[in-house]
Amino acid sequence: MATDVWGVLDERQRLSWEFAPFERVGPLEFGMTHEQAEEAVDGVLETALRDGSSGSETRADFWLADRLDARFSGPAVTVYYDRSIGLAGVAVNALRGPQVTLGGIGLVGQVPSRLEDRFTDYAETHEKDVQYSQCADPCSPQLGLVLRAQRAGDLVLSRPVMVAEAWADRCWDTTEGCIPRQEWKTFEW
């Protein structure tokens, strides 16, 4: 069976996770070690790749355990660790990642312009600032959330990146923020 690099899970197929700013993304808590993160997602996600360090960060990719299917390629979740704080960033794949919600708003696999409107309304209601990255991604450092975009064939869907409080300052800044450059280059999977 051929690999469908653009295969997008529908909402019924996605895991359901909630985002609690600066605390957790689903079962993944900011500050965890990689071993603790693996244990937290055991049976649901499996580590497929763990990169060596680049500076003070390490990256790991998690794949859906029950959907290691040849029709789909790419990880469901990419996590970033900072040596000084542990789990510091979580990026959710727009095509096959869990549906992560914030205040009832689905952040994953959405049409970016529609999500941006809902996100800015949410931010205003909760008195949070919205900034924009050099790539025009909406972000709230007060929530530790960047709403990036990811290609799905001829479509572009939302790929949220949620960060620990230590990484929130300048999280919209693609050159001076803490989110690794590798994440800013992720547009396809």
Results as ranks from 00 to 15, higher is better:
S73T: 14
T47K: 15
L15F: 05
T3M: 12
V130Y: 02
C178P: 03
L147A: 00
A37V: 03
T174I: 00
V146W: 02
R12W: 09
G104L: 09
T47P: 08
P141W: 09
C178D: 09
T58D: 11
G43I: 03
L87M: 12
E29Q: 14
E188Y: 09
V146Q: 05
G177H: 08
S113E: 01
G55I: 05
D117R: 12
L64R: 15
V25M: 02
C171P: 07
G43P: 05
L107W: 12
A20S: 06
G104W: 13
C135G: 02
A88F: 04
P141V: 07
G7M: 09
Q150N: 10
R118N: 05
A48S: 15
G97Q: 11
D154W: 15
A48F: 06
I105P: 02
D169W: 09
A76S: 15
V156H: 01
V111A: 01
V79R: 12
I105W: 12
S53D: 04
E11S: 04
L155I: 01
S140R: 03
E23M: 06
F19I: 03
G55Y: 04
P98G: 12
S73H: 13
V41N: 07
G104S: 12
A2T: 07
Q142L: 06
A94I: 02
L28R: 02
V161F: 07
S158C: 06
T174G: 00
E39H: 09
E29V: 10
G7T: 04
V163F: 08
G103H: 09
Q131P: 00
D69A: 13
Y122G: 09
C171I: 10
V100G: 06
E124P: 02
V44F: 06
D61H: 15
S56T: 15
E18C: 05
L145D: 11
